[in-house]
Structures are given as C-alpha cells and as structure tokens.
Design a binder for these strands. Structure first.
Lengths: 219, 219
DNA sequence: TCCTGTGAAGCAATTCACAGCT
DNA sequence: AGCTGTGAATTGCTTCACAGGA
C-alpha cells in the first residue's frame, strides 16, 4: 500500500506505507531524545533506536525534504517539528472511544495519546449504569447520541473498543456519522462503505500473539 | 523482513512477514465463519473479509501447501485447523502480563486471547497494594519473583504494559529470564540483547493515531 | 574525515494470466 | 463453468555506493 503526496515542487510522489510507520517511530524517538536533552543525532544512532538501518532512515526522510546537516546529523528539535508536520495538520485532534469497558477505559487513561496531541474527549456506551460517569476528564455518553455529540463537539477520530457482538451496530453508527478516521480494536477487519473514504487502522491484539508464536517456532 | 521455513520436501523457503500477518487474519475469519456455520469459502470471499485480493490469499496459502478444492473453494473447518498448525506448535500458550495498571488489567480481561489459545496465567507489578489480588483467574505477583514464577509455571510469553518510566527495569528483568517472546506496549522499540534471540512484537498505540491522521491528510 | 542525500541496482512482494482439476 | 495453484511479469521497497558539503 502506497500513499500519494504532493512534493515541494508540486509533483505527486508515492510514499511506502512502511515509511509512514517508521516516520511515526522516529518522531517518538525524537521526543525521548528531547526529554534527555540530546541536541544532535545521526541517522545511524536513530536507526539503532528504531530497529532499522541508517540508509533506511535517510531514504525515509528524503521523501519529505532535507532535514540534516552534512557531516553532522540531525537537529533533534528541528527534526521533531518537521516530523510532526509531516504526520498531521492539526495541533490537537479530538478523539472518542466507543465502548467504556475495561479496554475502552484503559485507552481513555493511556497517557501516550495526550502526550502526542490526541485528546480523548468522550466515551460512548449503551450501559445506563455507566452513562454520565467520567474517566479522567472524559465523560461517558449514551451511544444513541453519538452522531449529535460528535458533530457538536467536532470529534474527528474514533477508537472502537466494544465486544465483537456489537460490531455490526457500531459499524452502522460510524457509517452514519461524520467521523473521519477509525482505530479498530474489534477482531474483525473493518471496512466502512461510505461515499467519502474513511481511513481505518485495524489492531488485532490476538493476531500479535499468533505472529509471536510463529516467530518463536521459526526463528 | 522474511522468515525462513522448511517446506514439506525439506528445502528452505522464504515467507514474507506480511503473509504471516494475513494468515493470522484468515484464521480469525475462519473462526467467525465456523461460528456462522459456513462450510465452504472461496478465495475471493475470504479476500473481501480481510481487505486483500483473491490472488494474494491463494499465494499466501500456497507457501504452506494445497488446502483448496479446485472449482469449489476451501473447507472452512479444515482450513482453520491447517492455519492453526501453521501459526503455532502448541495447543495452549501460557502468557503473563507485566504491569497491572489499567492497560494490563484490560489485557488480562480481554476475551480474545483465551479464545485463540493464549492463556493469561499471571500478572506482575511492584505495587504492594495490588500483589495477591486477582484479575479473572490470574493472580498478581510481585515483579521481584518474576524469574522464579515464570520458570516454575512455565510461562513462555510476556506482554509489557508498564509505564515508560519502568522501561529499563523491565528490559533487564526480561533479559535475565527464560521468556521466549514478548509483546511490547511500551512506546519504545524494544530490542532484547541476549544470546538466544527473543522475538519481540512492538505495538505503539499512539503511533496508530499518527498513521491515521496522516492517512486522513493524504487520502 | 564524517555524515547526509540520492540515483541506480538488487531484491522482495504482489499481481497477472493461465494450466489444470472437478 | 468455476475456482485453485503457480510460474512469470510487474511493481514496489530496500540497500548499495558514492557525490557533495561541513
């Protein structure tokens, strides 16, 4: 899977999906380095911290511009800013979580989202006992009001953390909403059939264990 | 990244990593079909359910053998069994979770692991208030006893769900243990430096949001 | 001397196209 | 007629190797 972008000169360029994944990882690494007060980093050091090769780092970055200084490396603060700009248009995205069970609750409490500029502003559930309660600063709303609340609050992203049995219901709710992107933790490959194309990132937790046991068996 | 396996005839074959990921997804799909009572499925139907192409499905499966019937499709029960056998050697793997916070707790309660044959048998934490309590059927133990308990109980897999600040400590504990594989939810690229190679699958939750916002921006 | 940036080469994965079976 | 299995062709990704700048 490749992603088209416009280059600085205006001509279209194809970017490998794997490059985007690594760019996000480089950014995370930059933030750690900033916290440690590191000012300059070379492609080989960055590669070591992200399980890749120096050439790969340089090639990945070169899709988006020239960020380094020859013979020296990359300025950590500057590169962090550039990578942020590559990955998103906004400073803060508003995110909701569908499903206020243990997984939904854990996602709501996960500190990494806020740190990265993704703000969990609401949860949705169909359990009356949960509605009205708060997790952190995010309130739990009735899933019936999903469309209304997300549109009023301008929530663009949703994370799905409901049990498998609610999969079809949630799919329909999303298709009728104005949500712009979805992270799906339900073990089904989600494909929303709407006119406008809504990107979906599927995360299957059990799949990770299958892959792990395969790797152990065949390492 | 490619993975070498021995083919039926004994010669080594390279398998794309992406193929393994898809095989795990096909298996999940097979289980849904079994639950629905579907007996036969074609490569094109399977492809539709897993966001890929029929050719890709057939090619993926062909690395491991011939599982279909010409002109008909695949027997769901039979294929499910075959895929299980491709992905793992054991019926049940014992898994522990390091970190009994909200993420660790959510993973311990996640029903999908047990359904797939991965049994959460223990959690580890350093908070005395939590030690001795239970989540589902899994007890929370003192992280100090990690090596002893995992070896005695024959736990092979670990999932990391501790805060970033405990990253270095946990890394050391794992390196001194007999754990055979790790799923890492800490936002650091984990690379264990031990003599025997321990496979690690890194899952960075915030990274998924970065990717999503990139896809929205460039769709 | 050291490290970036990048065309070109090499390698890997996917898609095509069709033979073959039922 | 319909669907699998698979070499061959194609496309895409990574690695190489080196020019060029500090």
């Amino acid at each position: 899977m490749q992603i088209m972008i416009k280059s600085q000169r205006g001509n279209a360029v194809k970017i490998p999906y794997a490059t985007i994944e690594r760019i996000a990882t480089y950014l995370r690494c930059m933030k750690h380095l900033q916290a440690q007060g590191v000012k300059i980093i070379s492609s080989s050091e960055l590669a070591q911290n992200t399980k890749t090769t120096p050439e790969q780092v340089r090639k990945d970055l070169s899709y988006f511009g020239k960020f380094g200084k020859t013979g020296e490396g990359y300025n950590v603060d500057k590169l962090a800013k550039k990578l942020e700009r590559i990955l998103r248009t906004k400073k803060e995205w508003k995110v909701c979580i569908i499903g206020a069970g243990s997984l939904g609750g854990a996602l709501a409490r996960y500190p990494g989202f806020k740190e990265s500029g993704y703000c969990i502003v609401a949860l949705f559930d169909n359990n009356p006992a949960k509605i009205g309660k708060k997790i952190g600063s995010a309130e739990i709303f009735d899933i019936k009001n999903f469309k209304e609340i997300t549109e009023k609050t301008k929530i663009e992203l949703a994370m799905l953390a409901v049990p498998q049995s609610s999969y079809e219901d949630v799919k329909e709710i999303l298709e009728n909403s104005k949500i712009n992107g979805v992270i799906n933790f339900i073990p089904h490959t989600l494909r929303l059939k709407t006119r406008r194309k809504i990107p979906v990132v599927n995360v299957d937790l059990a799949q990770k264990l299958y892959i792990l046991s395969y790797l152990i068996k065949n390492k």
